[in-house]
Design a binder for these strands. Structure first.
Lengths: 106, 106
DNA sequence: TTGACATGCAACCAAATGGTTGCATATTAA
DNA sequence: TTAATATGCAACCATTTGGTTGCATGTCAA
């Protein structure tokens, strides 16, 4: 699996939306994924193909349907590339704090 | 800072190389960054502008030079988007194991 | 002050990208 | 078997992207 394909795949907002959709409900079919996106089915198919090639999505054929599953491994490798392990814990803590404050303040 | 800009910035291999370069040695000037890349200075300038817009790189003007610094915060946010906190620890452990095996085996 | 050095800006071009339409194939259910 | 459903493939097009060249501006050092 080339990291190049992963980054290219993540570059498009529609493809990120697809990942979000699968993160919310894993194993959706092509038609199910299309419903939430204002775009032809063929366009969505292309996006899914790119996500599959990047190994961010895995598919299982089930009869005439095709189920899509999110694979988080490549995303984790991105973080590991530019964030030292020690620093990462610090950033996570910071991010947690920020979220907690956002929930309380407004 | 829009996540859209971050993903777009990371999509290009040259820009990722620039981040790698800054991860190795922070605070490099434009000319220093150009040395390792087979491309005109103007092209590199454009790439750095995109990284800056995504807030992945911060710059400090120092006389006639401009120093570039890596900002890891947006990268951490990517990981947090699609990886649950619990799952992330599991993935990190897995990744660690894999790295250790790779070091021993060959 | 003046020449060399470091960076900035803009016009231009080829290639990649994201979308469309049209048609083909395969599976399920009546 | 046949009609409806679910997906696949290919040609085509507008826009974006990544690179170039050429010239302008600003700063340091002799």
């Amino acid at each position: 699996m080339s990291m190049d394909a992963v980054f290219r795949a993540l570059a498009d907002p529609t493809r990120r939306q697809l990942l979000d959709s699968l993160y919310a409900r894993n194993g959706q079919t092509l038609n199910a994924l299309c419903e939430r996106i204002d775009m032809t089915r063929q366009a969505v198919t292309k996006h899914l193909a790119i996500l599959e090639e990047a190994n961010l999505v895995t598919t299982v054929r089930r009869g005439r349907e095709k189920e899509h599953y999110l694979n988080p491994v490549p995303i984790n490798e991105i973080a590991e590339r530019w964030i030292g392990k020690f620093e990462r814990h610090r950033l996570d803590a910071l991010s947690d704090l920020k979220k907690r404050l956002e929930r309380e303040e407004p």
